[in-house]
């Protein structure tokens, strides 16, 4: 498979300033060194609890935030050859000049704040097109109508304000805006969590359809595991600024290895009365990302914690092709969990 994006030891710390001279006294370690490859045409699910840094990762990839350190390699198809650019350092102007800006897009969580309330839908969708290329107004209009049709709206919606639409329709407009620049890669930051259940399915199906039609690559950020299972081909699980496990979706759901992944998956409220959940109840809460525990980040809540866990940071190791885990006990967790909670 062809890589589209490579994250190398990506770090994003938000400084906390204090004192009279506003010196940096500490930092929120939102993303603390992650390596991740995103392949062309896949939908990578990024899963984790609130505050684990998944949104920061996604916003850093599209350069809404500047990374503290690390590299983001973008593989851009230029005719038949592939040009690899490190986009973690270059300026926003250079990003625009090298035509990468429009290739990386994002759909936001809350459709009520993702559109300027004073703009007509026409202008909302025209904005990205006008920002990146020059088009005549007639061409622009037909492009906009084409985009609206793609997401299941029509030209009758052109001259309306965002507040006249329901949440689901607004999310459709946001999707239309994101694909307006013909992107390669779209970050979907919890695109359905603000929507109703019945509308959520519409948007998920729309996203699937568009992915096939335009050969898009998605990074689907969510905390909703059933949604991510439905749409993703591969899943990466984050905990407190680090990736703890990544594997193809089916494999991850069948044989999760990391204790955190196990707990996460066992706690899914499945809408099926015949399924008896046996949740692994973790004690305590996620530690603060300001002072993460030394060693394995999960060591404070892990039911199988060993001395080594709180001393040494486990590396993300591939235990089988495509399945990587960051856990010192990776080889024995299955047995440990079966012993403690019964086999699943």
């Amino acid at each position: 498979m062809q890589k589209l994006l490579e994250l190398k030891n990506l770090v994003k710390h938000y400084p906390i300033r204090g004192g009279i001279f506003r010196r940096q006294v500490n930092s929120v370690k939102a993303v603390d060194g992650i390596d991740l490859d995103i392949y062309k045409g896949e939908c990578l699910g990024l899963v984790g609890e609130s505050g684990c840094g998944k949104t920061t990762v996604s916003k850093t990839i599209v350069r809404l935030h500047d990374p503290t350190s690390g590299e983001i390699h973008f593989h851009k198809q230029n005719g038949s050859e592939t040009v690899v650019t490190d986009i973690s350092r270059i300026s926003h102007n250079a990003l625009k000049k090298s035509k990468i800006r429009g290739k990386l897009q994002m759909v936001f969580q809350d459709p009520t704040t993702s559109m300027d309330p004073r703009m007509l839908i026409k202008n909302v969708i025209a904005e990205p097109i006008k920002g990146l290329e020059k088009t005549s107004s007639r061409e622009l209009e037909s492009r906009i109508i084409e985009l609206l049709n793609l997401v299941g709206l029509s030209k009758y919606h052109l001259l309306r304000y965002p507040h006249e639409f329901s949440g689901g329709q607004r999310q459709r407009i946001a999707v239309a805006r994101a694909i307006a620049t013909k992107p390669d890669f779209i970050v979907l930051d919890e695109p359905t969590s603000a929507l109703d259940v019945s509308v959520q399915a519409q948007i998920l199906n729309l996203l699937k359809k568009l992915q096939e039609e335009f050969n898009l690559t998605y990074l689907f950020v969510t905390h909703h595991l059933l949604v991510v299972k439905y749409i993703s081909t591969r899943i990466a699980v984050m905990y407190l600024g680090k990736i703890v496990e990544s594997a193809p979706t089916d494999r991850l759901f069948e044989r999760p290895v990391h204790p955190y992944t196990n707990a996460l998956l066992s706690g899914i409220p499945v809408p099926n009365v015949n399924y008896t959940p046996r949740p692994i109840i973790l004690s305590g809460d996620v530690p603060s990302p300001i002072d993460p525990p030394p060693g394995c980040r999960f060591s404070t809540r892990c039911p199988f914690v060993k001395e080594r866990c709180s001393a040494e940071i486990p590396k993300l190791k591939e235990i089988e092709p495509g399945h990587s885990v960051a856990c010192h006990l990776a080889s024995e967790t299955e047995k440990l969990i079966a012993d403690k909670y019964g086999s699943r």
Binding site: K59, V62, L64, H92, L95, K96, R101, G102, L104, Q105, M106, F108, Q109, D110, T113, S114, M115, D116, E127, P128, G131, L132, A174, R177, T181
Partner: peptide
């Protein structure tokens, strides 16, 4: 707000 972020993503 997200719409400002979105505009940044469009290279505006």
């Amino acid at each position: 707000l997200d719409y400002v972020h979105a505009s940044k993503l469009m290279g505006i």
